[in-house]
Computed example of a mutant assay.
Amino acid sequence: MSSDKTHAAIATTSPGHFTTIQVPTPATPDPGQVLIKVEYASMIILDTYINDLGHRVQPQDYPVILGFNGAGTIMQVGEGIDDLKVGDRVTAVMFGKSERKAMQEYVVQPRSVVAKIPSSLPLSAALSAAATIPDNFITAFSALFSPSYLGFPYPSFIPSPPPPSDPSTTSPSPPLTTPILIYGAGTTTGQYAIQLLHATGYTSIFATSSPKHHPYLLSLGASHVFDYRSPTLAADILLQVTPKGSERRLKYVLDCVTAEATLERIAQVVDEEGGSKVALLLPIKKGDNVRVEKGKEELMSELPEERNPFPKGTKHLGVRGILFAEDPYLRANLLPKILPHLLDHGIIQPNKVRLLDESFGTLEERVGKGLELLRNNLVSGEKVVVKIQ
């Protein structure tokens, strides 16, 4: 239900253009929803695809508000919600329709996409840090533990574990010494993947990144780090898989970049006989990184067989983090219960923040700076966060 009031939002109005618009401010949330005053919103590379390329936007969709993650304060609580109250600090993944996106002053969200920020997260900068979490945490958690992707057993430390699976339909749990490769571990998703695997007890977590990220990734729980640009990358990785054993190939890989060149490199270290699982964060890009140049873009949601570099029998699994909402267990637990628990107990920590506040000009100018940083690959190991209020 909307009031007569409006508030500011930043929206793309056509490919390559964005501006400030005024949108209706909701008066009250519906049952099962909350009204959030957004104070910080983070930006991801998908924002540049949407603004610059019109990715997955139809002409009739414009204007489309930007932003997939936000953090702020609960202003109103709809009927049926008893675990959130007015004044609570929260973070949320904000996807779907334009009116649910993050780059605006107020937004209504369903309870399932909202996580309460625990008091243990320091008050100073808590909201800006919390705005870095939802989409990448969801993607990492789903890629690792969802049966649709790599399918590792759900960690024992999470609250409200899912009901036991039918043993006849599930794969045996891999030993905690199983080598697991996180390609592009310096990305924000890669950082959460390392933390989750380390907390679960896995001890052979391989991470590729720029060398400047190596000390931090080791502190998060990586056991081995590799320079992704090394000409001997494949040999370096395989040397560490099981140096004294007979199994010299990787069975599990998470590609947090998913470009043609990364697939080629990963293909050199997976099982030559097939049977490996490779989780690919969609979309698949041309070239060697997440940057996409206008006029040269090609974003694929599936890997065509003629461009598949993996050995026959390799399972390549396209990961869409937002599909967590289609899983009844994850929808009810991942953000409402699991994420607050992990933050409260220090099991994961937010990403580092590249904050764009008033010193970068108006809200519109801040968003423009964020798009520039992302499209030109000028930020690494950090999340671009825009101060809204």
Rank of each mutant, 00 (worst) to 15 (best):
G72T: 07
L150P: 04
V113Y: 00
A92G: 03
A140H: 13
L123N: 06
S148T: 14
M103H: 03
G67R: 02
T91K: 00
I117Q: 00
K116R: 14
P153R: 06
I133A: 03
M94Y: 00
D83L: 08
Q109M: 15
F152H: 06
I138D: 05
G151M: 05
A131E: 01
L127I: 14
S119R: 02
K97C: 09
A115V: 07
A126G: 07
T73P: 08
A125D: 15
R100A: 11
Y62S: 10
L127F: 13
G96W: 09
A125Q: 15
L150Q: 02
G96S: 10
E99K: 09
K85W: 12
G72R: 01
F141M: 08
V107L: 09
A71D: 08
V64L: 15
V113A: 01
F95G: 04
G87V: 13
S128V: 00
S119I: 01
S142L: 14
G70N: 04
P153F: 11
S128K: 03
L121Y: 02
G67M: 02
L123W: 08
R89F: 13
D135W: 07
S142D: 13
A71T: 07
F68D: 00
P134H: 00
V57G: 10
R111L: 11
Y62V: 05
L123R: 10
P147E: 07
E79W: 08
G72C: 10
P110D: 15
V90M: 10
E79I: 06
S120K: 01
P63I: 13
D61A: 13
N69C: 13
A126R: 02
K116S: 08
V108S: 04
P110K: 11
F145A: 05
S119K: 05
A115D: 04
A131D: 00
T91V: 09
R89T: 11
F137T: 08
L150G: 01
G87D: 14
A129F: 00
P147T: 07
V64I: 15
S112N: 09
P63Q: 14
L127W: 08
Y149L: 11
L144N: 06
K101L: 11
A129T: 01
D61Y: 13
Q58W: 11
Y62Q: 09
A71Q: 02
V86C: 12
Y149P: 03
S98L: 13
Y62F: 14
Q104G: 06
F145N: 04
K116F: 07
A129Y: 00
V86S: 12
S128H: 02
L66R: 05
R89I: 05
F141W: 12
V113T: 11
V57C: 11
T139M: 10
N136A: 15
S120F: 01
S146V: 05
L84P: 07
D61N: 14
A143D: 03
E99T: 12
V57P: 09
S120Q: 06
V90F: 09
S112I: 09
F145D: 04
G67H: 01
A143T: 08
D135L: 10
F141P: 03
Y106F: 15
E99I: 12
K101M: 14
P134V: 03
V90L: 06
E79C: 09
N136F: 08
P59A: 09
A92F: 03
M94T: 07
S146N: 07
Y62P: 05
A102V: 07
M103L: 12
M103R: 03
I117Y: 00
T139S: 15
V86F: 14
T73Y: 13
G151Q: 02
A126F: 00
